[in-house]
Design a protein around this nucleic acid. Sequence first.
DNA 1: AAACTAAATTGGTAATACACGATTAAAACC
DNA 2: GGTTTTAATCGTGTATTACCAATTTAGTTT
Lengths: 247, 247
Amino acid sequence: MGNRRLFWRIVDKIESLINKGEFTAGSRLPPERELAEMFDVSRPTIREAIIALEVRGRVEVKTGSGVYVVEQKNASIKSKEISAFELTQARALIEGEIAALAAQSITEEELEQLNKTLIAMEKGLYVEQADREFHEIIARATRNKALEFAVSNLWDLRLTNPQIVADYTSVCKNNNECVMDEHTAIYTALKSHDANAARSAMHKHFNRLINALFDAVESRALEEIKRKNNEKRGLYSLDGLVNKSAH
Amino acid sequence: MGNRRLFWRIVDKIESLINKGEFTAGSRLPPERELAEMFDVSRPTIREAIIALEVRGRVEVKTGSGVYVVEQKNASIKSKEISAFELTQARALIEGEIAALAAQSITEEELEQLNKTLIAMEKGLYVEQADREFHEIIARATRNKALEFAVSNLWDLRLTNPQIVADYTSVCKNNNECVMDEHTAIYTALKSHDANAARSAMHKHFNRLINALFDAVESRALEEIKRKNNEKRGLYSLDGLVNKSAH
DNA sequence: AAACTAAATTGGTAATACACGATTAAAACC
DNA sequence: GGTTTTAATCGTGTATTACCAATTTAGTTT
């Protein structure tokens, strides 16, 4: 149950207090001893939590003075608040251009690597991994590490943001054939070194994904509405009364 | 002198041991007690250092078993090894598409904000900041936080990678007029909601930057060659001998 | 104004008890 | 006798308590 180490729980508590505005940016946290009493843990544990927050860049420790909340700049953008739609559109835009660029510089060896991911995907094993590799090989083929970096960051987003993970898994289940076909189309375009074809194939790939996401989210929203309506129906139902009065 | 808190120094020591290959990926670190003796500090300090390393993602702690070194995957891509050229090309590609997208959705208010950055830049104050804001406002105008995220990440790269910082500052000194003109052109295209014009203006902006970078690096390389040649000239020079023999 | 306390706060250590995981030894079972 | 299950043990991280040192800050005195 309470398996997670104690200081992590304290980190969460302090962080949420900061997020809630209980401790505002620039202000000083209560002294260690007070926090220890507050959360009913020992001082070393509080210190561990503060160190974790410090490494994360959320607070700054000034010896002899206190612990101060650090101004969070782009933290709101980071990870949270980004939807699967936004991520997919961004990837379409960026990876579309990457595909166009890669079409001009991709080597035979890289094409062979791409082909291997296609085979792996067809066999149905390591599908997730094959998917990521496919896109990363193309990014690498641009000979531009900044683009690799951008793709890698967006992929991390997909894996770390819980909402996006949920939305993606609901889509990716039974669409392997689609992905296969689309990846093959991209591969073919790259093999013929046709930049425009590669870009458009990549756009198609993500466009289909956006639509699939839309359908999935829509149907889930419908489910949710039905569920809530059923709850209300239970609350406001006259069935009981009707039955009784019928007798 | 030894002002920095003790555990940070331990973090450095352990990290350098990992980097040196003393502790290989996947292997277990010596137990806390042993490390404490090794570095001549107390166990709580070792624990603090390990927590810092854990938050940084360099090690993983398994209760009752030990502390294990984590495989570093994309660390090599991250930040290091990326040149100013690569970064600029990546930005051209990505922000070009962003400009095209933003042209369709940008609001009057955002256009006004853009105008303010132009005015600030013309006055010559907060130029760096005005530059960043200009690009971030456009990213925001896409209504896509994943794109904002990507732009923000690339900008961070520009500020954190020492080599890129050096290359950029050598270029940005006396080119404010260029930047002003290019930003104005982008602004005008966005104001008229012309996606293609916005994309191409953005491309021109970065293209000029790439050329400027190239010139700067080239001239610096020339300087370097001259310097080295002068050194060699000193080494192999016959001037001294000639002078002596002349007498 | 400068120097000097004194209080508040974090920095660091030592010793202790406990909980978890893995290994080993013993017991039970087949 | 060999195999599986169970129990004990040891190594390791987890967490607490208590204590003192170093630094900063504010106030006080000179």
